[in-house]
Each structure stands twice: as C-alpha cells, then as structure tokens.
Amino acid sequence: MSVLLDVKNLRTHFHTHRGLVKAVDGVSFHINEKEIVGLVGESGCGKSVSMLSVMQLIAIPPGKIVSGSAMFDGHDLLKYKPKGDEMRAIRGAKIAMIFQEPMTSLNPVLTIARQVTETLELHLKMDTQTARKRAVELLKLVGIPEAESRLDNYPHQFSGGMRQRVMIAIALSCNPKILIADEPTTAVDVTTQAQLLELMQEMVNRFNTSLVIVTHNLGVVARYADRIYVMYAGRIVESGLSEDIFLRPLHPYTIGLLKSVPQLGQTKSDRELVPISGLPPNLIDMPQNCAFLPRCSYHKERCRLEPWPELHAVGAQHYVSCYVDTRETS
C-alpha cells in the first residue's frame, strides 16, 4: 500500500482580534491509496482547517500556514503559491473536496450544468458538448433521477440531499486520487445521511479514490473507515486502524468519545452513555501541557509538569499521545 498524501507537522494559525488561534498545531497524517480514513474530534478542534490547509484554501489573512509539509506525487503542496497554476492543477483534479453545507456550497445563480462542466472543461480539457454528456453520466451515477432534464436547473430546485449528490458528482468528475468529505452529512436527515455515505463508499471503490471522512460522528467512522485519526485542540491525539480505535482505545479522549455514543449492538440499557465532562479548550493562549488535562480523569502528576506528549507507537499502526497507560488504570 503506497502513501498518496503525507502531511507532516502542519501548523495553521489565525490572527484574530482576540489573539492568536492555534487552530492546527503540529498535525501529521497520511492517506494511503484506496483507503477510507476517518478524522474525528469535537467541533472546533481544527479538522476542517487541517484539510483546507493541505489544499491551501485557508483565508490569508487571518490565517497562516506556519509550518509543515504535504507531500503529494513527490511535491510539497504547501510550497506552491495558493493561487498558482500548480496548486490549481491539484485542486478538483487530484484532490477534491466536499463541504458540510449542501445548501450553500453550490452557486445559487449558476445552473447545475455549468457547475458540473466547469471542472471537466478546466482539468480534462473537454469541449462544451462532451462535458455536458459527461455531466449527465456523472449525475446519473450519483443517483439524480432524470439527469438530462435537470441539468439546466438551479440549485434551489434541488433538495439538500440532491445537492450533496451533485457535489459528489462534481468532486469525482475528474477522477481525483483523494476525496475529502468535510462532514458531508451533518446538514441532512439520517436516512439521506446513510444513502450519501453508501454512495460515497461505492463511488470511491469504483473510481479507486481514497476517501477522507471528516466528522464528529463516531458511528459514521466505525462503519466506513479503515483507519482513524482522533483530533483534539489542534493535534492528533490517537491514530490507528479502526479496530484499534474501537476495540483498544488508549487515549483518555478517545475513551471518553466512545463512552459518549452508543456502540454497535448495544442497547441503551446495556450501558449508560456518558458525555465527556467540561468544554473543549479555547485555542487562544493554550497551555504548554496536555490540552485535555482539565477534562481527564486519568491524569497523573507528570501530565501537569511536562509538555504535551508526542505521539508514540503502541502497535503496528497504532499511535497515541498520552503519558498515562490507560490500560493499567481501568
């Protein structure tokens, strides 16, 4: 299995009037060929910013990618100019993105046809007629009924779920190597959510694309992801294969997350759901030591005194950043 995208030590900070927000602070992750990777964490922990940084889609200012590298196809994406030709040749063609708001992610004044064909014309150099034909095929593929007649509709004539299907069609139009889906199903109902995820899984299999699912829904990740990164306050605190994370979680935050959602095959009476106490930290003026410390029930003296621990290997592909061996404590 070869590595497609290798991100190392990514730091993205925002200069706000309230202070410096270290939204992403030393994140490393990689995406292998044809795998589905989950990135989980509470709202505001820096999941979107991590992904947007790789694509250089962060607004500068207030944002700034302070350090890091993102190796893709032998090149560091972060060395490219954000608006330059090299970066644009990656976006939408090699790495595509789907965003969390289907209602607002499509341009309200342009037809669906225009929005699907523009990537085809740009990256695959198709002429208008070929691009239109291909657009119809793509829309059929993602399950839009009567695709031909709906091609010249506007986004407001589509439901939220349908718009997200259009977004998926656009994202897959140029056969990208990686598809990043940033909470693709947060804004739709549960049934639509399941349909969209099934569709994405089917599509990435068909197109041999790797998929990154960014979400705070552990259930979604459990069902689809091969590998998982758990993020907290701008850092990865644990990563591993799905079974590592779900069966042998080690970081207190991961353990807390798992306790706060129902597990597969569990009924409510089996076990009480416990939300993690406390709130995620303010990313301005973060302390040197572990950011999860104030909410952690496992913490030891060492956690208070020493800086936030680095990730260390605890299994073949299992990494955790914690001083405490939570297996002993429980």
Partner: peptide, 26 residues
C-alpha cells in the same frame, strides 16, 4: 466569503473565472 466561492476555489478555477462567473452575478 460564501461557501460556494470556497467550492469554486476547491475546484481549481482561476481567480478571474471565480470573480467573473461566480462572484459578480451574485
């Protein structure tokens, strides 16, 4: 600052196209 402009950037479109096609009409 709208989401659909971020989508347009994520497609790899040129800035000129984003301004002329996606922004001005709105």
């Amino acid at each position: 600052s709208q989401d659909y402009i971020r989508t347009a950037w994520a497609k790899g479109l040129r800035e000129r196209v984003i301004v002329l096609r996606h922004t001005i009409k709105n």
